[in-house]
Design a protein around this nucleic acid. Structure first.
Length: 153
DNA sequence: GCCAACGTTGGC
DNA sequence: GCCAACGTTGGC
């Protein structure tokens, strides 16, 4: 059974346009350094899972596209690269600390802004709307996914 | 740039 | 294992 996720990306780093322009429209979801978000990618995501592609830390945060999980999780290579800002000296190839999945962009959508989502009672309980939520990857219920993808986008 | 909320670190 | 200090996220 497919699962659904909302994944935040800073558009300055990787926007939905960047993902669509990438080879095979696929980007490694690099740089996650939060255990809860890592565990979603490492232990729970399956190829074919649906992804709401969210732009964060920008002028108009919101959902800007649809994507899906492809392939199996593997260690984030940036954790081993001393020049990377995601380098983690406490990790090692023998015991990688940070795992990621590849995400393939499906299409860009009309923006569904955070402000709009907050006003929609049907989206009550959506992870990204919860008070103080900073988690960069949050599960999305099938009902929310269906509503967002068929009615709002 | 501010700051609330949250996660992590490390001394004890 | 507690918890204060610190760092980060991310909306505004």
């Amino acid at each position: 059974m497919p699962a659904y996720w909302l994944m935040k990306s800073e558009p300055d780093e990787c926007s939905i346009d960047d993902a669509l322009a990438a080879p095979n429209k696929t980007v490694p979801w690099t740089g996650v350094r939060n255990y809860q978000a890592r565990n979603f990618m490492w232990k729970q995501m399956q190829p074919g899972d649906g992804v709401l592609f969210y732009h964060s830390s920008c002028a108009e945060p919101g959902i800007y596209g649809l994507a899906e999980v492809v392939g199996a999780p593997y260690p984030d290579p940036t954790q081993f690269d001393p020049r990377s800002k995601y380098f983690d000296a406490k990790s090692s190839p023998e015991a990688p600390r940070w795992w990621l999945v590849d995400v393939q962009a499906r299409r860009k959508t009309a923006p569904l802004l955070l402000t709009q989502m907050r006003e929609d009672p049907k989206l009550d309980g959506l992870g990204v709307l919860l008070k103080g939520s900073r988690l960069s990857i949050t599960p999305v219920s099938e009902a929310h996914w269906h509503y967002i993808t068929t009615t709002l986008l």
